[in-house]
């Protein structure tokens, strides 16, 4: 089964607005329905509007996998209960994987590179970040729709793909290397004596899962102490 270029582009464009109406109660439900409407013909849209008011929340870049599979099942006239059951299962699996891959690994790794290259060499760092980050997530959006539509609900097994696990490992390594390299941004004249103990203290606070606002308060206390001592 192939999705067709025009329909794929419509789905991709709609997917950019998945979270526009995000709310605590319905989460991405309206966005999900808007994207699904782009994937079916005029006659089926009204039916879909009335019967697909399902709760939906997943990682925004991974939503294509689920929506593609849903369109496949919809065209094969699976029952609505069956559709809802599969959506419920796959949305949490893709959400968890997407959060780890994008928010926790790829984005911070590319941002760390952008910080180093941006501060050292200017706008090139920002361009590198935008180029690679967008290439990856746009690829995932397209790949999600096409693969989901092609293989249906088996798309969930894609999460076990070794290539994805390798991708995660590569970006973890890049991120870790960049973090180790981070001090080179500071000028050589800057006294680095406090850098290691302060990093250690902040790391302990992060590991203790202290609220971000308390960590920021600690930063202010440090700065005020420094101002008083001056």
């Amino acid at each position: 089964m192939r999705i067709g270029l025009f329909r794929l582009l419509k789905l991709f464009f709609a997917s950019l607005f998945l979270q526009s109406s995000w709310s605590f109660h319905s989460m991405q439900s309206l966005g999900f329905l808007v994207i699904a409407m782009m994937g079916v013909d005029q006659k089926k849209q009204e039916f879909l509007q009335q019967h697909s008011r399902t709760f939906f929340n997943t990682h925004p870049y991974m939503a294509g996998f689920i929506i593609g599979a849903m369109l496949n099942a919809y065209e094969k006239e699976h029952s609505l209960d069956d559709l809802k059951k599969h959506i419920m299962v796959s949305q949490s699996a893709f959400a968890s994987f997407g959060d780890t891959l994008f928010w926790q690994t790829i984005r911070p790794a590319l941002l760390a590179i952008a910080i180093i290259t941006g501060v050292k060499y200017g706008v090139i760092g920002v361009i590198i970040f935008l180029l690679f980050y967008n290439l990856i997530h746009i690829y995932f959006r397209f790949y999600g729709f096409t693969t989901g539509y092609k293989i249906g609900w088996d798309v969930i097994y894609i999460l076990k793909d070794k290539k994805l696990q390798w991708m995660q490992r590569i970006f973890e390594s890049i991120g870790a290397f960049s973090i180790g390299l981070m001090p080179i941004i500071l000028e050589k004249e800057v006294n680095l004596i406090f850098l290691i103990p302060l990093s250690g203290i902040f790391l302990i606070l992060l590991w203790k899962r202290l609220a971000p606002i308390l960590i920021l308060t600690f930063v202010f206390i440090l700065i005020i102490i420094n101002l008083i001592l001056l």
Binding site: M182, F194, F202
Partner: peptide, 20 residues
């Protein structure tokens, strides 16, 4: 120094795994 220390701690918190 304080901001960089926080940034490095953030990074280590994200990537401190055996393989990385």
């Amino acid at each position: 120094i304080v901001i960089f220390a926080l940034g490095i701690a953030n990074g280590i918190y994200l990537y401190l795994k055996r393989q990385s």
